[in-house]
């Protein structure tokens, strides 16, 4: 299996295992040479499954935030957190699954469109509050944002029209601050 496939195993999990859960792990990492490679390489070397991985700058220009959605039973997730914490360039690791958090994902979908199907696609876009960002005689490109479930749902709705290309960002997430207990 090529490493990229081992790392980003997006296949649906095999036989349902109740112990295996999806965890959203937020990582703050110093912007150092090879730091992302270190993290991605650790997942590959230890054989952990990643559903999605996104990375981008933060308010601190020396630090990036990586959001990883990983699957595993409690022991594997505990090991993932520990192994991440062992990496020197990592500033902080938070398993958001144990917290209340907001998460979003963005998707761009280029879908096949004819004069007949275009209105229907646009209707779906409206329901999901997606935007049309590009149009051609044969295609429509939509931009949708939301939780992973919402993104999954719009993709499911668009599938019958034939999706030509698609790009998902993977989940980004932040811990909720105000939780109403004050």
């Amino acid at each position: 299996m090529p490493p990229s496939q081992a790392m980003l195993n997006t296949q649906s999990p095999g036989p349902p295992d109740e112990k295996v859960k999806r965890h959203t792990i937020s990582i703050l990492v110093q912007n150092k040479f090879g730091a992302f490679n270190r993290i991605a390489g650790m997942f590959a070397a230890k054989g952990y499954n990643i559903d999605s991985l996104s990375v981008g700058p933060t308010e601190d220009e020396g630090v990036s935030r990586m959001t990883i959605v990983a699957r595993g039973d409690d022991q594997i997730i505990e090991q993932i957190t520990k192994q991440l914490n062992k990496l020197i360039d990592i500033v902080k690791v938070i398993d958001l699954t144990f917290e209340s958090f907001v998460d979003r994902e963005l998707v761009l979908v280029k879908v096949h469109a004819t004069n007949d199907s275009r209105p229907e696609i646009m209707q779906i876009a409206e329901i999901f509050r997606a935007k049309v960002v590009d149009i051609s005689p044969r295609t429509l490109t939509l931009e949708a944002t939301g939780s992973q479930q919402k993104v999954d749902a719009i993709i499911k709705m668009l599938k019958p029209f034939s999706i030509k290309e698609m790009a998902r960002t993977g989940r980004v997430a932040l811990k909720r601050e105000f939780q109403g207990e004050v």
Partner: peptide, 11 residues
């Protein structure tokens, strides 16, 4: 060599 030894070094 930094790439090669990344998984076999502490850092």
């Amino acid at each position: 060599i930094v790439g090669i030894t990344r998984p076999i070094t502490k850092h």
